[in-house]
């Protein structure tokens, strides 16, 4: 595609030279250090009972003294990165008057949006990969147990999952940057969606679940489980939930199911959770991953169509 390489190169250089990127990278370092610190406190003191996947515990331990856990951090950090990389993709160029000049060059319009998206995705991948690599590297030095092949694959899966999650947020931000002419509006719109999904989605899901399956103190265990099922179903609209579930299944091989019902049963029947093989964990979270990809693709497609048809004025 004409011009794609030039646009990609320029956008990538912009990302890596921006102050935004330096700030994000500092956060990555902080997170890695905090994770390793928390893990050092917990894993050494022998909290972990299963020794089979000790390396993966690095990524999921949460501290009691220091309230920090990598899953929580990533589920907050990745949307911020995605939004930061995408919110001014088109609106920024429009505001500075460079868009009409750029589109007067012999490049296809899709090259512009594709180049920007690819550059953002590359930057995102670098950030995510470095955070995981930092945690793995520092953790390895500390616990001294090298990861086995399956653990490496699972960690790799985590990187891919996180990139997909970030890609969704970035395409959402790009979508708003196409629709809103002002950069600030576009950023705020993305942040509003993020906050809504983060804070209000679970509230709304709880309300709806309460309306569908009313429960009180006298409810049977069955009703509570049904309530929980409905609640989860609804909160799966939110990509945050999808990411959290996929994260958990990927990093905790012992997690045999994402369904409350089955989990409940296995606890009641006193089953000892046996770790799932990777392929089983993957098939468990397949719906989550495909939903995330579909959401990202949907946002991207809408912004693509809108951008292709748009009239580009310099004022």
């Amino acid at each position: 595609m004409t011009g794609l390489a030039a646009i990609f190169r320029k956008e990538l250089a912009d990302h890596f030279n921006s102050k935004r990127f330096i700030i994000l990278f500092l956060l990555v370092y902080l997170a890695a250090i905090a994770t390793t610190y928390v893990a050092a406190q917990n894993i050494r003191s022998g909290i972990t009972e299963s020794t089979q996947f000790i390396f993966l515990r690095l990524f999921i331990v949460s501290g009691e003294a220091l309230p920090f856990s990598l899953p929580l951090f990533l589920s907050l950090f990745i949307p911020v990165v995605g939004i930061a990389l995408g919110f001014d993709a088109v609106s920024g160029e429009r505001a500075s008057g460079t868009l009409s000049r750029l589109l007067a060059q012999p490049v296809y319009r899709d090259s512009v949006i594709n180049g920007k998206f690819l550059a953002g995705l590359t930057t995102l991948s670098v950030l995510v990969a470095s955070i995981v690599a930092l945690v793995a590297g520092m953790g390895l030095r500390m616990i001294g147990v090298p990861p086995n092949a399956e653990e490496i694959l699972r960690i790799f899966g985590l990187v891919v999952l996180s990139i997909v999650y970030g890609a969704f947020w970035m395409s959402l931000a790009v979508l708003f940057s196409v629709f809103f002419s002002r950069t600030a509006t576009s950023a705020l719109a993305s942040i509003a969606i993020w906050i809504f999904l983060l804070l209000f989605m679970s509230m709304i899901a709880r309300l709806i679940a309460g309306a569908v399956v009313p429960i009180d103190q006298n409810s049977t265990a069955e009703q509570v489980v049904r309530f929980e099922e409905v609640y989860r179903m609804i909160s799966r609209i939110s990509p945050n939930t999808l990411y959290a579930e996929a994260f958990a299944a990927l990093m905790t091989p012992e997690l045999g199911t994402l369904s409350v019902m089955l989990l409940q049963e296995s606890i009641i029947s006193g089953m000892v959770p046996t770790p799932l093989p990777l392929s089983q964990s993957l098939s468990l979270i397949w719906p989550q991953i495909t939903s995330l990809i579909a959401l990202a693709a949907l946002c991207f497609a809408i912004s693509y169509v809108k951008f292709m048809r748009e009239e580009i004025r310099s004022t």
Binding site: A6, N17, S96, T98, R101, A104
Partner: peptide
Amino acid sequence: YMPEKVGFYEDLSARENLEYTAWLNG
């Protein structure tokens, strides 16, 4: 084409701005 309110990437130098145009033109 020079638009009415011609804009450039303000963080880049004049040389870098024009180099980008040159690359886009192959």
